[in-house]
Structure formats: structure tokens, C-alpha cells
Design a protein around this nucleic acid. Structure first.
Length: 281
DNA sequence: ATTAATGTTCAGAA
DNA sequence: TTTCTGAACATTAA
């Protein structure tokens, strides 16, 4: 589920409550679902983080990173349905992990909740973060990517631009939903080979990626029809009301007010676009 | 019963 | 060798 804006919202929600406090205990919640994959194993992680202070909460691409005072970080990848919660969860049967915090008087907990259970947890040293989540594995963060970097990325692949935008090694943070939204705002057809895009196109990609993701963060992300995505206080996001194309197949385009939004499939994922506003190149 | 769902990874094909 | 596609992961809801 979560793409960059949703993960950024989780991080911003967690940060003021969690930063500077100590992990009294890190627990696996009892639920009968298959356990979340963890590396190293959960017991090892649990032992190593007990008593550590959380020095910072940050985002790397679509991951939540909890920096500890022992030169390691807990990295949570929410994938499709994972949530970081400071309050009561949508249901208790998909709670996965609980962090019990000490300090500042009362004990406080926060949780990882994941319905489908595709999320992951890992404990990485700062060196491992460099190798596993560094420039060798991830492209520039979508919010920081320059026009020049967009140009370089598009030069080196002939894949359709929508597909290329979702390759985290090219640009980190964009997923299926925001890729469609960005291309619509940039008026670029999703099947255009990245290689054939000119400077004026890559300039638009930079501009509207920044604009849309920033706006989505301001709205605290997108909560789709199934209602899964929630911020740290279990509240729905608001950006879904601003979507121009995502999940709007068959509806009239809000830009041209004439043409119906189409749905196509690229790499097993739905793409939505307006054939009038985004004509083939 | 079938299908699709905001993500990533891996095997095998091109 | 590199690049790319489809299946798999686990669960739910329409």
C-alpha cells in the first residue's frame, strides 16, 4: 500500500512520540497469521534492541527506519498493507509487532499492523544500510531527484515510462498509484519509451513528481476504497479525493472534461490515464 | 468462485 | 551479459 507520501506520513506521526525514548521490550503480537519475515530472526532482533534508545525516525524510500544508539537500525517495510500505529489498530488480529517504550514518565507502545503480511522487518548495521539501501540499490529519492537525474534515468532504459518510474533503482519512492497521477499531470502517455522523452518531458516529470508527492504528504496520503491505509493515529488520509486518474477508469477526465479515463495493464499492474490529455508520443 | 489490491523478489526467458 | 516478464508471497473484499 504505502508509497512515499504514506511512509513519510507514518514517520512524521511516529517521530515526536518515539524519538529519544528507550525500547523497553520488542514483542511479537500473538496472531494466528503467518509470521512477518524478519532478518535476522525475530528472537535475535528482539534481544539486540532491548534497552536501546531510538535516536531518530526517518524514511528511506518506502521504508520506515528507526535508528538506535547501538549503531543499528530497525527497518520496517510496510509493502502493501503495513501500518505503523500509535493508537488502537483497525483490528487486533493483524497486529504483528509491539514496541514497548520507556521514558518520559508513562510507558507507551507503538505497533506494526499488517493485514496481508507481506511487510518485512530487518535489523541492519549502519554499514549494511549503506550497502543494502544505498545508491547501489536505490535511485535518488523521488522528492530530491533533479531534472538532470531524470534525464539520465530516461536515457538508459527503453521501458515504458510508467514502468521505469516504479523501478526503485531508477527513482526511489514512487509506486503504482502516484506513477499514474504524475504522468497525467505531466501529460505524458504511460507507454512512452523512457528513452524517447526529451528535456521538456523530464523537466515536467521532476516538477510534477515533487508537486504531487508534496501535496499528497500534506493530505497525509491516500486511503483507497478498501480503507486500509491509516496514519499513525489510525485516521484515513485525504489525497484520494484529489486523484485525477487512479482507479477512475470509465469516469470523465477532470482536466479535459470530455474523455473517459482508461485502464491498461503494464507489468501486471493497473495503469490509468486520459488518452486525450496524454496522447501517444 | 474469481479477481484485484498503494510492493518486492526471484527464476527463467528474450 | 543484461534486461525484462510473470509468478509467488498472504489475506481480504468486491
Amino acid at each position: 500500500m504505502p508509497e512515499l507520501p504514506e511512509v513519510e506520513t507514518m514517520v512524521r506521526g511516529l517521530r515526536p512520540v518515539v524519538e529519544g525514548r528507550k525500547i523497553e521490550k520488542f514483542l511479537r503480537c500473538r496472531c494466528r497469521c503467518k509470521p512477518i519475515s524478519a532478518s535476522p530472526t525475530f528472537p535475535t532482533i528482539s534481544k539486540k534492541v532491548r534497552g536501546c534508545k531510538i535516536t531518530a525516525v526517518r524514511r528511506i524510500a518506502k521504508r520506515v527506519v528507526l535508528d538506535l544508539d547501538n549503531d543499528h537500525s530497525m527497518v520496517i517495510e510496510p509493502r502493501m498493507t503495513g501500518l505503523m500505529l500509535l493508537t488502537d489498530p483497525p483490528d487486533t488480529e493483524h497486529l504483528r509487532f509491539e514496541w514497548k517504550l520507556a521514558g518520559r514518565g508513562a510507558t507507551k507502545s507503538f505497533w506494526f499492523w499488517d493485514r496481508r503480511g507481506l511487510g518485512t522487518l530487518s535489523l541492519l548495521s549502519s554499514a549494511e544500510i549503506q550497502t543494502k539501501l544505498g545508491p547501489a540499490k536505490l535511485g535518488p529519492d523521488a522528492l530530491l531527484m533533479t531534472v538532470n537525474e531524470w534525464g539520465k534515468m530516461c536515457e538508459k532504459t527503453s521501458r515504458p515510462i510508467k514502468v521505469a518510474m516504479m523501478v526503485q533503482k531508477f527513482v526511489a519512492g514512487i509506486g503504482n498509484l502516484y506513477a499514474s497521477e504524475i504522468l497525467h499531470r505531466a501529460k505524458i502517455h504511460p507507454e512512452t519509451p523512457a528513452k524517447s522523452l526529451k528535456k521538456k518531458h523530464t523537466a515536467k516529470l521532476q516538477k510534477f513528481t515533487l508537486e504531487i508527492l508534496t501535496e499528497a504528504i500534506r493530505y497525509e496520503g491516500s486511503t483507497l476504497g478498501d480503507g486500509t491505509y491509516r496514519n499513525a493515529l489510525n485516521e484515513a488520509g485525504g489525497y484520494q479525493n484529489a486523484h485525477r486518474v487512479y482507479a477512475r477508469a470509465g469516469k470523465v477526465c477532470t482536466s479535459c472534461q470530455q474523455t473517459e479515463i482508461l485502464r491498461i495493464v503494464q507489468c501486471q499492474r493497473s495503469t490509468f490515464y486520459c488518452p486525450a490529455c496524454q496522447p501517444p508520443v
